[in-house]
Design a protein around this nucleic acid. Sequence first.
DNA 1: TCTGGGGTCCTAGGACCC
DNA 2: TCTGGGGTCCTAGGACCC
Length: 418
Amino acid sequence: MYALVDCNSFYCSCERVFNPKLEEKPVIVLSNNDGCAVARTDEAKALGIKMGDPYFKIKELCKKNNIHVYSSNYSLYGDMSRRVMRTLSEFSPEMEIYSIDEAFLSFKGMNKDLIQYSIEIKNTVKKYTGIPVSVGLGPTKVLAKLANNYAKKNKKQTQGVFQIGVDKESDEILKKFPVGDIWGIGSKSAMKLTLMGINTAYDLKNSNEKTIQKILTIVGRRIVEELRGVSCIELELDLSPKKQIVSSRSFGRPVFEKQELQEAIANHITTASEKLRKQQSITKSILIFVQTNPYKNTPQYHNSATMKLMSGSSTTNKLIKYSFQCLDQIFKPDYEYKKVGVIFMDIYPKKNSQRDLFSLHDSAKDDMLMQTLDNVNEFQGKGSLKFAACGVNQFWKMLSEMKSPNYTTRWTELMSIR
DNA sequence: TCTGGGGTCCTAGGACCC
DNA sequence: TCTGGGGTCCTAGGACCC
C-alpha cells in the first residue's frame, strides 16, 4: 500500500503559516517575474482564479475581491518543504520525495489501520509545520494519486484522507473520475482517449491494455495496469544526481544589449555550476539560449548554441567563458530580448572522470578555488562572492514586488513578536 | 507594460558495428 | 524470383509532471 501526501495550496499555505490573517481569505502566489498565478487557496479558486492565469489579466479581479497576492518566495517554500519532508520521513522507512510539496510513502508490511495512521500523519504535519496536507491511499502509485485528488476535492466528506482499492466501491469513484485527471495522462493523451470513447478512469481501467499501449506507448499501458491494482511504477528511493541542470529567467524589462545578456548568462552559469558541484558532477556539454517575448508584437528571434567540452568541467569561470563564446555565435543586435538561460546537458560524476591530453580538465587549483567560493557563499550568503562578469546592478532582474520576508532563512527577516 | 521555471522518460530513425 | 541477423549508441521531438 502506498500513500501520497500532498500539501494543500502549498505556497499559499506557507504564507499563511507566518501571516495568520490570511486564514480563510483568498490568497494567490505568482510565478517568477510576477507572471502567472501558480498557487491558489480554495477561496481564490472559488472566485474563478485559474491555474496559470497571467497576473495582469486578473489584477482587477484580485483588487475587487481583496485577494491577497504574493510574489513567490522560494527560500521560504524550500525551507518549509524540508520541514514537511522531515516530519513525513518519521512515518515510513521508505519515502520518495516527488516534488516540493508531495511525497510517496510505502506502507509495505505495516500492520496498521492505515486510514487512522494517515489521519495521524496529517495532524502531525499540521502541528509541527503549520502546513495542511491531504493523504491518498492506494495499492499503486497511480491509485494513491487518484485517491489524493479525490480527498482534496471532497475535503468535507473525506477530512483530507481517502483510500482507494480495486473493489466495486472504488469503481464507483473511478466512474466519476475524468480520464484527463489521472496522473500521467496529459491533454494530448486525454484527447486521443476521448476520441476512443474512454472518458473516465473506470473506462481506462477496463480497456484493452494492448490497444492502449499502441496509442500511448508503454507509459499508457503501465497506467492501465496500475489502475487495476498491479504495481508497475516503483518508489524511487535513491537520490540520483540530476541528468540535466537548467537555469533561466525572464527579464523584468526589455533587454537589447549583448553586455546585459552576458551578465545574465554569467549569473545563470553561476547558479547552475553551484548545483553541479553540489552533486559532485561535471558537465560535458553546455547550451545557452536566447529568446524574444513571444506574446509581444515585436520581431521574434530565438536561438541556441551548444558547446561540447572534451573533458568536462564544473569551474564557474571556465564555463562563463565558454558560454560567452556560445552567445557570440547566436547574438543578433536590435532584438528585444525577454529571456536567456543555460542548460548543462551531459552530466557525469566528477570522480573517475576521463582527463584529456591537453590539460583542459579542471586542475586542483580550479577545484580549490571553487571550494573556497562555495564555502564563502555558504557561510556569508548566496552571491556574497562572485565573478565580475555577473555584474553588480542587475537592472534586468525579474520583478518580485510582493514578496514576503524570508522568515526562516535570514536573521534580519525573522519575525518579531511584541 | 504585463504570460514561470525545472525536470524526466519514451520512441523513431539514423549511423554504426560484427 | 532471390541480397542476413543481431545489436548499440545517439539525437530530436513529443509528452508528461509539479
